[in-house]
Design a protein around this nucleic acid. Structure first.
Length: 327
RNA sequence: CCGCCCUUAGCUCAGACUGGUAGAGCAGCCGACUGUAGAUCGGCUUGCCCCCCGUUCAAAUCGGGGAGGGCGGACCA
């Protein structure tokens, strides 16, 4: 797998391809970042971007994880003190999940976002941005139903973070694309470069296959789930024997195999009772998808395997979380 | 600063005029059927009716005060 292929695999979108190709020619020392509002428990959505960070580290990138404490504060997620503690826990779980500690730079937003230079630059972006544009950028991200001024400032700070963290590539889920497009528009107006962006797909809601999975509503798989809870949630998931369900629906079980399991495991064994033909082994996602779609692989067997592999992925973080809570 | 509107189940809302032990849809949960889930049947759960004070035998409902949210006006010298 060449660098470009590794950088872009499983990406829903890259802006722009030309810019990423240029980065891929000499990835060593290039910097990529993702910002997260601190959350005490990583869920499967966080892990999707984390998988991309691991890809980038393997391609030679330096990775910056922004623990966006100020953003969380602006988005009404609590006091600075509480957010800070939450962020520490989040960092530990990322390391337990498999980010390379040597190649990962964890930064708190509050380390630099309150500096005078930063604030003055931020004001310049505020002058260049309409309220409605900022609000639109936040529509997929904000919490609560009342739009506050803090939420208009929020995406502008995301834009400026890219500049201040000296990042070559901004990573985020597809829900971040409006923020990133705003950044590409507004940063040049303030004399900065437009950032190159890479967006990961959104996994469909587990139980319905509709839209995107949300940790705030509906079922999500997280680092605090026990082996039994994972098995139960996976078993309850929507999973027609099809790679492309009718309508706008997706098959979340396949999506998780594609975006979470195969990127981290060389091959996948599906244990299957002898009466149904015995175990199956897959070296690629495509092969598994084809078998499910054709009926060779029954959804129930696929779910059993998915729960086992997810549990393997989650176990180190779950253990770390337990240690942190006991400490 | 002033005025008007809203607040009832997890969500969207009915009920308020005319006081009498709180409802619908959706969601959720449980069963049946499927070697998974969904769909489809069958069943079930859910409430500080925003808060406080008052009137009354009795207040989600009437009166007063307050909070939160939305909208508008005024101000633009």
């Amino acid at each position: 797998m060449d660098a470009y292929e590794r950088i872009t695999r499983n990406a829903a979108e890259v802006v722009t391809e030309e810019e990423v190709e240029a980065l891929a020619e000499d990835p060593d020392g290039k910097r990529a970042y993702v910002g997260y509002e601190p959350s005490g428990v990583l869920h499967i959505g966080h892990l999707l971007t984390a998988n991309k960070l691991i890809d980038l580290q393997e391609a030679g990138f330096e990775v910056v994880v922004l623990l966006a404490d100020v953003h969380a504060y602006l988005n009404d997620k609590g006091t600075f003190e509480g957010i800070r503690e939450t962020a520490e826990r989040m960092k530990e779980q990322f390391l337990a999940y498999g980010l390379d500690e040597e190649a990962t730079e964890f930064r708190y937003g509050s380390e630099f976002e309150n500096d005078e230079d930063y604030v003055l630059d931020l004001h310049e972006l505020e002058r260049e941005t309409s309220i409605s544009r900022a609000e639109r950028a936040m529509s997929e991200i904000k919490s609560g139903d009342t739009v506050r001024v803090s939420q208009a400032v929020y995406p502008l700070m995301q834009a400026l973070d890219i500049e201040y963290l000296d990042v070559d590539l901004a990573i985020g889920g597809m829900e971040q694309r409006k923020v990133h497009m705003l950044a590409r528009d507004v940063l040049p107006k303030a004399g900065h470069d437009a950032p190159t962006c890479l967006h990961t797909p959104l996994i469909a809601d587990l139980t319905s296959g509709e839209g995107k999975m949300s940790s705030s509503s509906g079922v999500s798989i997280s680092m605090e789930d026990s082996t039994e809870e994972i098995a139960e949630k996976v078993n309850d998931a929507f999973c027609p024997p099809s790679a492309d369900p009718e309508g706008d629906l997706e098959n979340p079980v396949l999506q998780i195999f594609e975006y979470h399991v195969f990127p981290r495991f060389e091959d996948v064994v599906v244990e299957r009772p002898d009466e149904y033909g015995g175990d199956l082994r897959y070296g690629s996602y495509d092969a598994l998808e084809a078998d499910l779609d054709s009926g060779e692989l029954h959804p129930a067997d696929a779910k059993g395997a998915l729960a086992d592999y997810l549990d393997d992925l989650i176990a180190p973080g779950r253990e770390r979380l337990r240690e942190l809570r006991e400490a």
